[in-house]
Design a protein around this nucleic acid. Sequence first.
DNA 1: CTGATTTTGTTATTCATTTCACAATAACTC
DNA 2: GAGTTATTGTGAAATGAATAACAAAATCAG
Lengths: 213, 213
Amino acid sequence: MNNKISKNSIRRLIRYRTVLQRFQNMGLGKVFSDNLAEALDIKASQVRKDFSLFNLTGNKRGGYVIGDLLEKITNIIGKNRTYNTIIIGAGNLGKALLQYTGFEKEDIKIKAAFDIDPAETHKQYSTPVLPMENLHSFIQENDIEIAILTTPALAAQRVMDLLVKANIKGVLNFAPIRLKAPKEIFINNVNLLQELENIIFFIKEKKEKIAVI
Amino acid sequence: MNNKISKNSIRRLIRYRTVLQRFQNMGLGKVFSDNLAEALDIKASQVRKDFSLFNLTGNKRGGYVIGDLLEKITNIIGKNRTYNTIIIGAGNLGKALLQYTGFEKEDIKIKAAFDIDPAETHKQYSTPVLPMENLHSFIQENDIEIAILTTPALAAQRVMDLLVKANIKGVLNFAPIRLKAPKEIFINNVNLLQELENIIFFIKEKKEKIAVI
DNA sequence: CTGATTTTGTTATTCATTTCACAATAACTC
DNA sequence: GAGTTATTGTGAAATGAATAACAAAATCAG
Ligand SMILES: NC(=O)c1ccc[n+]([C@@H]2O[C@H](COP(=O)([O-])OP(=O)(O)OC[C@H]3O[C@@H](n4cnc5c(N)ncnc54)[C@H](O)[C@@H]3O)[C@@H](O)[C@H]2O)c1
Ligand SMILES: NC(=O)c1ccc[n+]([C@@H]2O[C@H](COP(=O)([O-])OP(=O)(O)OC[C@H]3O[C@@H](n4cnc5c(N)ncnc54)[C@H](O)[C@@H]3O)[C@@H](O)[C@H]2O)c1
């Protein structure tokens, strides 16, 4: 493959899969680029362009076979195996994620949580909450590739450094700070305050009309 | 103003403010486009371009006065008043958000949560969890502009319809479905599973090398 | 006060992404 | 099975976003 693929195409690819799974559950066997476009609120040509980028092909006039498409997309995104994950910081948010069963279905397994506070590590959940001392060895021994970071912002960089040492591959960071790490570690930031502020910008009554594209 | 402003510029504007506040807390009085660029890991010309779009001006050779800049940005984004917010669905995630104090600091006030389950509405928190019957009148009477949607996906559209009826202005949606609503209501989706899948794509060892730009 | 230096603000340029447009072709119609 | 229609796949065109480039202005040095 020769073509450059943007992060946006990948985000869309993930959404295509979500939608395709829904279609499949509804009993459908085929889709047209049209249907996918409508579901994602984009243009059909965008769908076909993306597919072309990833060498996803269909049938002229016949559209795409959902089953085939799902198999190929899964191959590209990478989900016919389990990805082992841990949560660091078993506070409000960490525990909510720990309790959530929706990841499991998708073969993202949360193997443990970690916390510095002994009060947390002594509680019993179906998934254990372990003390930070165990972090390094646990990552090694359980083939952990992804960490979800839900400590306070102040602790986040310190934890990140530990994760780097333990050779983590990717991090989903909820702490509202920009983490420093070698660039081969993929960090995905989720900043909920900024998501709310983004809403505020759009609902705010504008003094001077600002055209937003 | 004549120029089109992209959603990206707005996202960056929100980040500029975050960084500027940090600088201010460190006792600084002025910044250069350089400093902001470094903090956000973008180019200085991007910062100046954005500022130009929003008519944010500084002083040649003198940089920008942080205080002034913060005031103007706050004026644009809209945060010298309080935004009243509710949470719908007081489950794992809803309760984590309810407990979080970081929004309050930024004048985003969570006034109540709502749940269909009487077991939830009878518990006592510092913020009340109310039954769904009260939703409409509560929104009206408490000047609620933003709703955070944390019900299961199956209930989400039904709840959205209620919110539309009650004239909500913006929604932060955590349920993994695409909500339908009139376009003047701003919906911001957070899909944590997709954020994790995005990480998986990037950490997955590639069979055929795909160049990601 | 003059010239050198720094930094903004904006225009031009480059680079990236989306959309268009249409040939190729598979499927349907009669 | 000839003609019509629907839909893909992709190169070209249009649009959009980021970066570079630089003139203008402010400050500084001596
Ligand atoms: N809860 C929310 O709704 C919410 C919303 C937006 C952002 N966030 C961010 O997510 C993060 C977590 O938020 P929260 O509300 O769950 O906080 P929290 O205080 O409830 O939980 C943080 C947990 O991290 C643990 N911890 C602290 N230092 C640690 C360390 N060095 N190593 C390991 N564990 C450590 C604490 O013991 C605690 O259990 C914060 O950075 C917060 O800003 C949370
Ligand atoms: N918890 C997580 O970490 C997590 C992660 C990713 C996505 N999500 C999504 O966020 C949403 C909430 O997740 P959760 O884990 O908190 O679920 P949850 O089941 O713990 O909580 C959902 C709450 O919504 C309430 N509810 C159900 N129907 C309702 C209705 N019609 N009106 C009002 N309330 C109603 C339930 O009583 C329950 O208290 C889900 O859509 C889930 O897919 C959650």
